[in-house]
């Protein structure tokens, strides 16, 4: 295995990860909610009274993050390699499957494993597995 040492950024990875942990900790200890983006979004499709505001507030916080960052520092570069068509297919699959499987990288991957939930550990292994496989097929077999 070849490791990309030039782009491997352990310190920002650790501090960024700690921030994700702190955000999830705040959310469960103060709001009593799991910081799982799919679950937060899912509730908005079947809106119930007094159950909308906190969901929208969390999402607004996410969207505002780069804008808040930009007020003090230059934003890092982002690079989306996928074509628009591939993004559409990818988005559709992610939308349907994360609701079907009750979670994504935040809900199962971060919060679920932190809760030591067997369900989330299995879900995380499943999506990591097919994630690795998909990139292998796209990049090395089909060589798109």
């Amino acid at each position: 295995m070849l490791i990309d040492w030039n782009n491997f950024t352990p310190w920002s990875a650790i501090s960024g990860g700690v921030m994700l942990g702190i955000a999830s900790a705040l959310f469960i200890l103060l709001n009593g909610r799991i910081a799982g983006i799919c679950g937060i979004l899912g509730g908005l499709y079947r809106p119930q009274r007094n159950d909308i505001g906190w969901r929208v507030a969390f999402i607004i916080g996410l969207i505002l993050a780069p804008l808040a960052w930009a007020t003090v520092n230059t934003l890092p570069n982002i690079n989306i390699e996928a074509s628009n068509g591939l993004l559409a297919i990818s988005g559709l699959i992610v939308g349907i499957s994360t609701r079907y499987g009750s979670g994504c990288t935040s809900g199962h991957g971060v919060c679920g494993i932190s809760r030591l939930s067997p369900r989330s550990i299995i879900a995380t292994l499943a999506f990591m597995g097919t994630g690795f496989l998909t990139v292998f097929i796209v990049r090395h077999v089909l060589a798109i």
Partner: peptide, 18 residues
């Protein structure tokens, strides 16, 4: 199945919901 399919979608673009 949900987890497996999510990995495929994620792997196609590198983007997940958050």
């Amino acid at each position: 199945l949900g987890g497996l399919a999510f990995g495929v979608g994620w792997g196609l673009s590198g983007i997940c919901p958050a």
